[in-house]
Design a protein around this nucleic acid. Structure first.
Length: 263
DNA sequence: CACGTTGTTCTTCC
DNA sequence: TGGAAGAACAACGT
């Protein structure tokens, strides 16, 4: 679930609620989610420090510790950060790391299915190079996207989900961008005409930014968007045609057969 | 209880 | 050769 817009919301949550407070205790309850260093060392590295800055690249959220290291958080399929007030009740379910601040407040990293990851890097760019991530999908720019379409082959949905090409778009938002751009998900890049390329280029940042504005919460999405209608026996919110469902790029895919015709 | 789910990594292939 | 496609995998709710 957590794709670029979700992680952008997470980042904002951490930036607003977790910076500049002294960390008194860190408890990693699932060492298997930590990579690159022992969980015990992650704990000791954080303790006594403060979070000072945040950054996001694709689906990764980075939080600076003091004035050097960056803690990298990936949320896999079911992860999220949860800020708890000092008097907040029991630790939430599936908490894999719990950071306690000196005022008693806490930051819980939760991850039900444990597909997330916690790691450390010297610089955000190190994470990008280590993981071979492409440019963040929101910092691509028009040329960046056009260049990608020129350089890559295959289905357009595969390109958008390829984190080495552009970072941040996953299954849900790939479908949403394609729906808004009125391009069939299985279209080969080489078959896209100029108008389709322009619509994709325009809709990619528009959809992502609008999703962030709405807190990545599908119930707040425009009624004309696809996502709120996924997984139901639903109709296209634009033209009323029955939505179609299938597998594209190995993933469950929804589209409108009327507005997004196969080429 | 097999299935569906998602992002990533590994393998295969052209 | 390198990029693309496909399979495998992780854990868990249904």
């Amino acid at each position: 679930m957590p794709e670029l817009p979700d992680v952008a919301v997470f980042e904002r949550r951490i930036a607003k609620g977790a910076l500049d407070r002294r960390i008194t205790d860190v408890d990693v309850s699932d060492a298997g989610m930590v990579t690159g260093l022992p969980a015990s060392r992650l704990e000791s590295t954080l303790e006594g420090q403060r979070f000072t800055d945040t950054h996001r690249h694709g689906k990764w959220c980075l939080v600076q510790v003091g004035d050097e290291d960056w803690l990298g958080l990936h949320f896999g399929m079911t992860g999220l950060p949860d800020l708890l007030a000092a008097d907040d009740e029991p630790v939430p379910e599936h908490t894999r790391m719990l950071v306690t601040f000196d005022d008693g407040g806490r930051l819980a990293y939760r991850c039900q299915r444990r597909f997330g990851e916690l790691t450390f890097v010297d610089e955000p760019d190190d994470l990008v190079s280590d993981r071979d991530l492409g440019p963040d999908a929101l910092r691509l720019g028009d040329d960046g996207f056009a260049d990608l379409l020129d350089a890559r082959r295959g289905a357009v949905k595969s390109l958008m989900m390829n984190q080495s090409a552009m970072a941040g778009v996953g299954n849900i938002y790939a479908d949403e961008v394609l729906f808004n751009a009125r391009v069939h998900p299985g279209t080969a890049i080489s078959d896209l005409d100029e108008r389709e390329r322009r619509r994709l280029r325009n809709q990619l940042p528009r959809v992502l930014e609008m999703a962030i504005d709405r807190q990545a919460d599908p119930t707040r999405f425009p009624r004309t968007w696809l996502t709120p209608h996924r997984g139901e026996d639903d109709e296209c919110p634009r033209c009323g045609a029955p939505l179609q469902h299938g597998t594209v790029a190995q993933r469950s895919t929804w589209w409108c057969p009327q507005d997004q015709p196969e080429s």
